[in-house]
Nucleic acid binder design. Structure first.
Lengths: 221, 221
DNA sequence: TAGGTTTGCGGACGGACGTTCGATATGCCG
DNA sequence: CGGCATATCGAACGTCCGTCCGCAAACCTA
């Protein structure tokens, strides 16, 4: 019984892993079930024994990935109270996970809108749990309202999640270095020691230098 | 002659603007030419008078958007030498433009891989011009090699480009505030004044706490 | 070995898509 | 007024896609 169950599970997980790679390479909508059939060696119709629709396949990948990311994080943060330390652990978990599971994380970051209805809602629930954990930590670190917490939170996640657009494992600096650099940039700033200059830097802003793209004096927004 | 030319241009640009909105809402591959025909009021085949293929339509949108963004930036930076000021202008231009042209910028950020061949190459060329301008500025600000310039550059762009995933014009803080907050976070850091704590925060890292998603001791990466 | 459940497949169906073609209207120039 | 370039359209073509159905192995159990 245990063996049968685990044989099924192993094959499902192998399909999910392969499908994640294909979705990452070609994009969810571009990739066809036939592509996945070819890559897994399972026949087109045979795949439907393991999921009920293409969208459910995407959901299974995203839910599994985010679930693991989240439970790893909660295990790590357990018992740790100091907010800087909690932030460091959050970023470390996120970035390590991202780089160890590039395909899944790219699918998670890039195909968020491909899910609809209940599938979408369930993944978004987990997403909200993560962002609210982060936002709480950030508000402990900087309780004064001089920086918008939502902006700060998504600035941090943007910094990290953008990884899939540029990171190449064979050419870039190792993970530990990325964690260190991003943590330092976000917490200490990229150029923290020039206290006098930023004031200068803010004079003469572009003002309305960004009208619509299409007409030089466009009436957008 | 000038009038005919400009009538053609106006219609083309109106089509591009509508198409950008639809691509932003539904995604490039999900959106059909029929959707664009419906939204513009032009017939399906009539659209092909203005472009030769769906991919060229996407290219025209991206190229126009990035072109404007880039020329705005170069005009702004002209004659400004102080690197902090240049960085501030770059971020201000980027964020203002992003928020004033959400649809186009979402298409630019999210549909980068939808272009192929020469279309892809031409947009990437402009993209590279922007990132290299940014990287040069950052290296002037922090010449020491203690933070990887590539990581810093893409951390900054990730922070900004991630906007399209969370920003809601009606609920969020105004643009000027977003520019200020992001500039401060990136340059000064989110929590710059706790010099002692970060050292503590780095003890006991998760180590190999991020194996593959799928197996607890997986052989990924 | 008989019977039932699990696992797998080939082939088809209906629909949506990008693109093309030939025809028509419109407006300008001679 | 005749003719050419511009602008627009309806209808169709060929292809690919997600999904479903019916049938056959394979395998466990009794």
């Amino acid at each position: 019984m245990t063996d049968e169950r685990s044989a099924y599970d192993e094959k499902l997980e192998s399909i999910l892993r392969t499908a994640a790679q294909i979705f990452a390479e070609k994009g969810y909508h571009q990739a066809s079930i036939r592509d996945i059939a070819r890559a897994t060696g399972v026949s087109l119709s045979g795949l439907y024994y393991y999921f009920n629709s293409k969208e459910e396949l995407l959901f299974l990948i995203q839910d599994h990935a985010f679930g693991t990311l989240l439970s790893n994080l909660e295990r790590l943060l357990d018992g740790v109270a100091e907010p800087h330390r909690r932030l460091r652990l959050l970023m470390e978990n996120h970035l390590r996970y991202f780089i160890a599971n590039t395909a899944e994380m790219k699918v998670l970051s890039h195909e968020a809108e491909a899910l609809t209805g209940d599938f979408r809602r369930r993944v978004n629930g987990k997403k909200r749990r993560l962002t609210e954990t982060a936002m709480q930590i950030l508000q402990e670190i900087r309780p004064a309202g001089d920086v918008d917490p939502r902006v700060a939170t998504f600035a941090m996640f943007g910094m990290m999640n953008w990884l899939y657009n540029w990171h190449r494992a064979d050419r870039d600096v190792p993970v530990e270095r990325i964690v260190d650099d991003m943590y330092r940039i976000f917490v200490e700033g990229f150029a923290p020691d020039n206290a006098a200059v930023p004031a200068l830097a803010r004079e003469a802003s572009p003002g309305d230098a960004a009208p619509s793209i299409w007409r030089s004096g466009g009436a957008d927004e």
